[in-house]
Amino acid sequence: MANKPDDALEEVSQTTELSPELIQFKTLLESTFIDVELAFVMTDQIPSVVVPKESLHDLCVFLKTNSVYDSKMLSCMAGVDYVDYCQILYILYSVENNCTIGIKCNVEYDCKIQTVSDIWKAADWYEREIHDLYGIEFEGHEDMSPLLLYDGFEGHPGKRDFPFYNYEEY
């Protein structure tokens, strides 16, 4: 399971038949971000890009201002613990063009990732939630105080190795 996203990447790059939406998405991003190593996958029916964390912020700004995708709304942000690293999924939506796209970013647990709360206000609480559950630090976020957990909670309950079923009196 730990290597699952990488396997999925290889599969997609091997098969030649990509969906038209993904090809369009790929052509646009590859022509803009020439030096960046990008991978393209389908998340269910959503064309998605796997981006290194250094270029995440630039890519988000580009997709928000781009006329084709016009991703003014950050619809969802989810963290997934793949044991070795944490994958953060951004689902962007354009109300005008009615199209959904995804961004995936793999972060090691001891690394920091740049915040997108300056691009979308909605990211503010989502990032605090991911910080609570997975302990990912978001660089540039104004307030990283616990949102869902209480002050002084130890550990990150979203992680796979969190002892969830061992109850403790509080």
Binding site: K4, S75, C76, A78, I91, A122, W125
Partner: peptide, 24 residues
């Protein structure tokens, strides 16, 4: 957002709740 690893339990289940964003 549901991730399955082929077992009888989901690997990850994330809910995007409408009230969460509305309240923010």
């Amino acid at each position: 957002y549901l991730v399955s690893d082929g077992t009888d339990k989901p690997y990850r289940l994330k809910v995007r709740p409408p009230s969460f964003c509305n309240l923010s």
